[in-house]
Design a protein around this nucleic acid. Sequence first.
DNA 1: GACAATGAGACACTTCTTGTCTTAGTGTCT
DNA 2: AGACACTAAGACAAGAAGTGTCTCATTGTC
Lengths: 193, 193
Amino acid sequence: MTVDPAERRVLNAAKSCCERWGLAKVTIEDIATEAGVSRATLYRLFPGGKDVLFEALRVVELEDFFTRLNGHLDGVDDFEELLVRCVVHATLELRADQHLSVMLASEPGETLGQLTVDGLPRIIRVATVFLAPLVDGYLPRRDGARLVELLSRLVISYFLAPSEHVDLADADSARTFIQTFILPAFQPSLTRS
Amino acid sequence: MTVDPAERRVLNAAKSCCERWGLAKVTIEDIATEAGVSRATLYRLFPGGKDVLFEALRVVELEDFFTRLNGHLDGVDDFEELLVRCVVHATLELRADQHLSVMLASEPGETLGQLTVDGLPRIIRVATVFLAPLVDGYLPRRDGARLVELLSRLVISYFLAPSEHVDLADADSARTFIQTFILPAFQPSLTRS
DNA sequence: GACAATGAGACACTTCTTGTCTTAGTGTCT
DNA sequence: AGACACTAAGACAAGAAGTGTCTCATTGTC
């Protein structure tokens, strides 16, 4: 899963070009120049051009996102606390994500698709891979996956359209939310508190 | 000097397109769509296309800038205070200017040219037209023009490359600066304090 | 010296952008 | 009702820009 340093440079270049100009206006040439790499090399690394490149970018961004999220969950040994931290940090990260906000502003359709339609299954898949191990101790594997999926959908929804009643970036609000709507559903399967 | 509402809409569209994509990436089509007019209409309003349009945009931006600045100088009846407010508000406006900062990030060469080389004479001309009346009571016309020019150059320079010693956005710092470097030079010509 | 990786640039091809023009539709004034 | 000015929509040709593939010379490594 290690990424070639040159690939990484190109992906970073793609990201910053995107932030400057928006997905639709970026050219392969721009990215190659920004990365300090020739166009030929870029095609060698990502045969297929822009589509493949940005697909790869989405993958690494997603993995980075959950890697950072995992970093905030170290040593939490309480189920409720784990879920609260998950949604709070995920929400904070989404709100602070410069790249995401530029994308949402300049290419709303495409970006929303990546968050809610075409891209959602993958988000849930990656979330499950990263987070399932953490809930493994508390729930049967199958219920863990369902929980992660549910929370993923909710975090995204509340991020895109904030509610008047709930603020998932606020620990207290998130805790109340989880106690009320999430925990009861999974209570029966809890193997330990 | 009144601007046609349709022209205004187009200019605003041009501005916001620019903020999103940067000057180099904006097309006439983008601007027309954003303004909700047809391409034909845009060419009728600004024969010459992008060049003419952005030239017009620079003109109205510049006039708006000094119109706002003038608004902050109402009723000031002390020469030193007038100069201090001028440089402070001009500096604050420059720093807060969303459009300018995006332009500086995405098209540094072009934008710097507009601030320091090709565009500077115009800035000074407009500054003189707007500000000369205010210093008219204190200085002979000719010295007023020289003062406005000097301050314009200084504000721009300190904005582009902040100094460790002077912060023209800070009233105290600006006052000291003006007392030290500006007022002495014009003291002899002062017609009233 | 053989080797793999790269930058530079040529290339044919496609797509985008531009500037102009025509047409049909709209609302206004008389 | 009819003349009028104005505009959106879209056709159009010419040119510019972007794409994807190739070749070749260069570089640094084993």
